[in-house]
Design a protein around this nucleic acid. Structure first.
Lengths: 346, 346
DNA sequence: ATGAAAGCGCTAACAA
DNA sequence: TTGTTAGCGCTTTCAT
């Protein structure tokens, strides 16, 4: 009842394993008749090559590893769907690992995937990762890596990111256009690429529209909102300022929902007292109270582009002289959290 | 720059590969001094055994496969987190595949995982799966499988499920307690285990509280809400009945949000006109408009229990004479979608 | 206590 | 065109 092997076929057909192998892989140096025989028998016995043996032989596996902070987040799960859709069609399997924003787990996952001989890696950095040696070494050994979303400056390779600067700029400009003057920014740790890019867009918009930039209005959450207490404390701090903000631009899902939840609890009217725009791919943004104005990232598309680049790197390693960083457009969906019901209906 | 192997160590130390192997795996028949030498060198060279070679040799991999409908759903991503937390500690790796509720993909994923020599499988059935041969065969070949959440009646093995009957009963009874008389049920395809269990709990509650059961108030969505049109059509049908329901009990995330979205669009007051309770693990239920009364499943716990059972099956295959089906309690979180703000605050 | 050799499933260089 | 052999990295008899 065990899986059938080439050896079994060879024995049954009185051939050598190499002949069977050749027949199966459609080699040219093979008697058509023999080939037919082998193919038929293999088909009948439902032969499937053992991918482990193949991996051992050629040190590759037709699979790509994905390391992301977490899957319980629509942005990342959409990313994965994009990745899978393409990889699947090109004959690659996708192995997913979560770092949970832990540097140690990121390293452990990386090592495991490498020992499992994945052909390439797709990585979105953990928010606590500052040391990149584990990736750097692999790249030097020739393992293709493509980063997406949270990318390192220091490593030269293909990268796919959202246009965080523009998205952020648009969000901030939008809040300004609704008459807000004191716009706070609730964001992730500063050393993440997305953080600084979003911060820059926010600053530029303030500047362009003649509003002062005030460092006190920017709150960095080390855990990106995953520690509820930290997240809520940041919001409370903002609210307790002598001149509290009249709008908050939040940089991620968790940050956004945490913020909403504090404001709701405090019965603060949104957007009248405080307007909200969030960088988020939450699927139910429309159903929130109030419906959330969101900067949405084309996660599916980002995932697809990233695998395409990765697979190109895997299959044509030599052909890559220049690495590209693709920046894909975000879109601002305006809803009541920034515009107010009446205004929207006009 | 390639990974170091036993052979390299043997060569460097002038030993045979078998001796090195013995030293590394702490065999008893080995000279302590030799062992020390080998260990030291291995440590220094950062030797890691090649898991692929090991898999090839003993047809196992210290990894378990997970097949679930989709990860972009909080219930399932929490399930995975539960699975990973335990598996990781017991030295197993977790390989995740999505079936996207496609029977073909479920079969393909299964085959792939098996060919990759996973030591066991954790499965939540796709909503379109009616034929179970692919799992049945594997079980007969001795591959441990544990089902969770969406489980098959026909296969005898460990299973972990939520107490769907009780959860459903509680939800329905709760709606009745708020004075609702015509409670509709929006649910998934009938041949899923969760569907019939939830339906049964719903029916029983109606019966116990003296309300008639009306088949017209039950709508099955073949795609479980993933086809927005189908989902919304079902809700519309309910609303257009001559005697429309005064409450809807929805059986899953998508069904719930789809329903909410139709009601909001139609400006139907919740819960005054229509009360809502959803079976859902949506993380932002509290922030929805209105905050959603939810039957929450202990997804993390379910995942943990399932892996534990699976790993026990893997490591002590003989010791299992009786298979157990664990049923874990859900909890009903009451919010405004069924109770109304005033009532809640009293 | 150690080494030589075989084998897990497959491919490829080399022979015939 | 087909067969023989070696080897991918590792473990495990079987000798020594």
């Amino acid at each position: 009842m065990e899986a059938i092997t080439i050896k079994d076929i060879a024995k049954a057909l009185n051939l050598s394993t190499s002949t069977v192998s050749r027949a199966l892989r459609n080699s040219y140096e093979i008697n058509p008749e023999t080939k037919r025989l082998v193919m038929e028998y293999a088909e009948r016995m439902n032969y499937r090559p053992n991918p482990i043996a193949l991996s051992l032989k050629d040190s590759k596996s037709k699979s790509i590893g994905v390391i992301i902070p977490e899957i319980a987040n629509h942005f990342f799960s959409q990313l994965i769907n994009g990745i899978e859709s393409i990889a699947y069609n090109l004959g690659y399997h996708v192995v997913i690992f979560q770092s949970h924003d832990s540097y140690e787990r990121e390293v452990a996952n990386t090592n495991y995937l490498v020992s499992r001989k994945v052909d390439g890696l797709l990585v979105s950095l953990g928010s606590l990762t500052t040391n990149l040696d584990h990736f750097q070494e692999l790249m030097e050994k020739g393992l293709p890596i493509v980063f997406l979303d949270r990318v390192p400056k220091e490593i030269e390779t293909h990268k796919v990111v959202a246009d965080n600067f523009a998205g952020s700029y648009e969000a901030t400009a939008h809040l300004i256009s609704t008459g807000k003057k004191r716009i706070a920014h609730l964001t992730s740790p500063i050393y993440l690429s997305i953080t600084s890019e979003r911060l820059a867009g926010y600053k530029k918009a303030l500047e362009d529209f003649g509003l002062p930039f005030d460092e006190d209005y920017v709150k960095y959450c080390l855990y990106g909102g995953k520690m509820v207490a930290e997240n809520e404390a940041a919001v409370e701090e903002l609210l307790n300022m002598s001149e509290p903000p009249d709008a908050i631009f939040t940089a991620s899902d968790r940050l956004t929902t945490g913020c909403l939840s504090v404001l709701n609890r405090r019965n603060i009217r949104i957007p009248e007292e405080i307007g909200i725009v969030g960088f988020t791919n939450i699927s139910v943004a429309e159903l929130l109270n109030p419906p959330l104005t969101a900067v949405v990232q084309p996660a599916l598309d980002m995932g697809q582009q990233a695998v395409e680049l990765l697979i190109r790197l895997i299959e044509h390693p030599q052909k890559t002289d220049v690495f590209e960083t693709r920046s894909v457009k975000t879109s601002l969906i305006k809803r009541e959290s920034s515009v107010g019901k009446q205004a929207l209906e006009i």
